[in-house]
């Protein structure tokens, strides 16, 4: 495990915790796309099925369980506990536009044509587009609370650090995974526009609002 990988994982965890604490403290999930959170829960569920089949390390197992738990708690907060505060009107991204192509692609382009492998591939492809309902919601309402932008920043940072991790692993271990790398790069590109707004607005103390 290299420094980019561990910082990436910490950044990912921090993003998830920021979102949970924000919802919990404000007792509201306004401005948060429940659809993106459902997709992330689906991503973790389909990817971490190997919890039952392969043991990698204590770290790996613990982090997977934490990510799964946090994802389901977040979905519960949005659609259960604080349902009345959710912005379902603005969360209007059509999930089938993501799920249908992602399912098709995971059957076509995978390492092995086995159930577990196809589900793993599905989770990799789905993660690369799972944030789109959230970004769509922000572009629709034209604004985002500052704390929501911190969540997105750490989520994007996690992706960027994973790319650094892959470059490192390619040079030191001669390791790379084409499916993960291509999807990871696509995913990171989706955050570029947001990163620009984050640096030029949020870091200068302004609220993120679109013209």
């Amino acid at each position: 495990m290299n420094v980019f990988r561990i910082l990436g994982d910490i950044s990912h965890l921090l993003a998830i915790i920021i979102l949970l604490v924000k919802i919990w403290k404000s007792k509201s999930c306004a401005g948060i796309s429940g659809k993106s959170q459902i997709l992330f829960a689906l991503v973790f569920t389909t990817r971490y099925l190997d919890l039952f089949t392969t043991f990698i390390s204590i770290y790996n197992t613990v982090m997977k369980v934490i990510f799964l738990l946090c994802a389901y708690i977040t979905v519960y907060m949005i659609y259960g506990k604080f349902r009345k505060t959710s912005d379902s009107e603005n969360d209007s991204f059509r999930l089938e536009f993501l799920l249908v192509p992602v399912t098709g692609l995971s059957f076509l382009e995978n390492h092995n044509f086995t159930a577990l492998e196809i589900l793993w591939t599905f989770s990799i492809y789905l993660e690369s587009v799972a944030i789109l309902p959230q970004l769509f919601m922000i572009s629709k309402t034209g604004e985002a609370e500052t704390i929501t932008t911190h969540y997105l920043f750490f989520l994007g940072l996690y992706r960027a650090l994973y790319i650094a991790n892959w470059i490192w692993r390619y040079h030191t271990e001669n390791f790379y995974d084409q499916i993960a790398v291509v999807s990871g790069v696509v995913q990171t590109i989706f955050y570029c526009d947001f990163f620009y707004l984050y640096v030029t607005k949020v870091l200068k103390g302004k609220k993120l609002s679109l013209p």
Partner: peptide, 10 residues
């Protein structure tokens, strides 16, 4: 180069 799976990653 190998084309292995990134199964040890999260």
């Amino acid at each position: 180069c190998h084309r292995r799976k990134a199964k040890d990653e999260l």
